[in-house]
């Protein structure tokens, strides 16, 4: 790998983003109160957004904030408050592995392994790819390229998300709707 001259602002931005991400993520898994977890999650999301901007993906940074912070975490908060789970007993499930330590060791080994493998292959082995033929250009807005890719190379995936959203909406409605009596019971006023 070529030695890269790092500029101080870049490093500062990176460090800030990384701190936000890591601290936020740690917050998510260490706070007891789900609302605090959600707040930590937002911090992570902002960190990721900053990292996106640093990597010339401004559009995604905005979408990240709009979709994740603006919709997803709000939904979380809404449900937390709606159910009042922060003050009462939680909705719990058995974790996959009972032992905390076991899970910890397992995850650490896995992640260390992944990092090791990535480092061994010098982080990247692919080549600028010919299939899409669309490359990001300079520091211009990449929204156009993004849009073009969505409607060419990723057209099918894009259309498939329509099915995904339809099923999600129907599913949410089915799940959230209150039980109603059907015709038989409705005669029993």
């Amino acid at each position: 790998m070529i030695a890269v001259a790092l500029t101080i602002p870049d490093v500062v931005v990176y460090v800030v983003a990384a701190l936000m991400i890591v601290v936020g993520a740690l917050g998510v898994i260490s706070f007891r109160n789900p609302v605090h977890c959600a707040l930590s999650l937002i911090m992570t999301l902002f960190g990721v957004a900053i990292a996106f901007i640093e990597q010339e993906a401004q559009f995604l940074a905005a979408v990240e904030i709009i979709v994740y912070a603006g919709a997803i975490v709000i939904l979380f908060l809404f449900v937390i408050m709606f159910l009042g789970v922060d003050r009462r007993d939680e909705v719990r499930v058995d974790p996959l592995v009972g032992q905390r330590a076991f899970a910890g060791v397992g995850v650490v080994i896995t992640i260390a392994g992944i990092i090791f493998l990535m480092a061994r292959s010098h982080w990247i082995t692919g080549v600028p790819h010919v299939a899409t033929g669309v490359a990001t250009k300079g520091n211009n807005s990449n929204v156009q390229e993004l849009g073009r890719a969505v409607f060419t190379t990723y057209l099918f995936a894009f259309e498939a998300t329509a099915a995904l959203l339809v099923i999600a909406v129907v599913g949410a409605v089915v799940l959230a709707r209150r039980e109603r009596a059907s015709t038989l019971e409705s005669s029993d006023a």
Binding site: V35, Q58, F59, A62, V63, I65, A69, I74, D86
Partner: peptide, 26 residues
């Protein structure tokens, strides 16, 4: 005048909800 421009509006309007929600909750 960021390239994402008006998306900032949507992003920020998303964030401003938090103030209200958290104020009430906390």
């Amino acid at each position: 005048d960021p390239p994402i421009g008006i998306l900032l509006l949507l992003a920020m309007s998303g964030i401003s909800v938090y103030g209200v929600i958290l104020a009430g909750w906390s």
